[in-house]
């Protein structure tokens, strides 16, 4: 009886590894979990994790519906809320039996990570939030950077890019691969492949409001704020710093919303400073 339950659990864990396309490698024991944002998958972290693989256990994954995850596991009800995405993170922590993780989340994954850390603090040690925002839409004195109409237009832009321009969804062929772990990425599609899933993720991301959750966070966090970030402008970063307990904000020289792609060295440097 006990054996049966045990085997059942093992299968479940294996399912999660496959479901979220989890990669678990690195030579350290301290786990570092990288969570991608809206739009793309775990390949986003390609320039960052090599700087940590000697000292950390690196965990990469795709949210269900993104990257190379098992799209058949997508559930509209579950992923109709950031809590559903946070559950992915918690599922992975449980499946890999992780403790005291350093969670590195880009964009919406900042909030997803915070939600997960509130629910099950025992999995977490600290959080690195790259371009996070507690709310994207302006609201009665709060500056989020967007109006509701901007988001509606974004959804329409996305739809038009899914009409059938195959290039956008085609497998990404990587140049200069000299790392065996990356070979598998060759056959991967880069961004979320299902237009309906991408649409719902966009809605959930840009319409979410997590300002009420910030005070519940217990772990230390690093906010990496880019200069001239349209998606998470300075006001948003400042709001987070003011309301997120135990947080440190660093304003980066990097511009745009993806410093881990445009300025990996600066990103890595600030992460190392925080984790030292």
């Amino acid at each position: 009886m006990i054996t049966a339950i045990f085997i059942g659990m093992m299968q479940l864990d294996g399912d999660i590894i496959k479901r979220n396309n989890v990669r678990d490698f690195g030579r350290g024991s301290r786990p570092m979990v990288f969570a991608h944002g809206f739009g793309c998958g775990q390949q986003m972290w390609r320039y960052i994790w090599p700087a940590f693989e000697n000292d950390f256990r690196i965990i990469l994954f795709d949210y269900v519906g993104s990257g190379n995850s098992d799209t058949s596991a997508y559930n509209q009800e579950r992923y109709g809320s950031l809590t559903g995405y946070a559950q992915d993170v918690l599922d992975i922590c449980r499946a890999l039996n992780l403790k005291d993780i350093v969670f590195v989340g880009h964009s919406v994954s900042g909030m997803i990570g915070l939600l997960a850390s509130i629910k099950q603090p025992e999995f977490f040690e600290s959080l690195v939030l790259i371009g996070p925002s507690a709310r994207y839409i302006n609201d009665d004195g709060y500056v989020g950077g967007f109006e509701k109409t901007d988001i509606d237009e974004l959804l329409s832009t996305m739809e038009k890019n899914y009409i059938g321009w195959a290039n956008f969804l085609a497998p990404v062929v990587m140049q200069n691969v000299d790392r065996p772990e990356l070979v598998d990425e060759l056959a991967e599609s880069f961004c979320s492949t299902d237009p309906l899933i991408a649409r719902q993720f966009a809605q959930v991301t840009f319409l979410s409001d997590n300002r009420k959750d910030l005070h519940k966070v217990r772990h230390p966090s690093l906010i990496l704020q880019c200069s001239q970030d349209l998606i998470a402008p300075n006001e948003v970063g400042q709001y987070l710093q003011d309301h997120l307990p135990n947080s440190t904000q660093r304003v980066m020289q990097a511009t745009g919303h993806c410093p881990h792609l445009s300025s990996p060295e600066e990103t890595i440097g600030l992460m190392k400073e925080f984790l030292a």
Partner: peptide, 22 residues
């Protein structure tokens, strides 16, 4: 504005990793 979001979340990452977007 909407195209800026799309640029940051999809276009730029793709360009950065692939070197080309069409």
């Amino acid at each position: 504005i909407s195209s800026r979001i799309f640029y940051q979340t999809h276009f730029f990452p793709l360009l950065k990793l692939k070197g080309q977007v069409s």
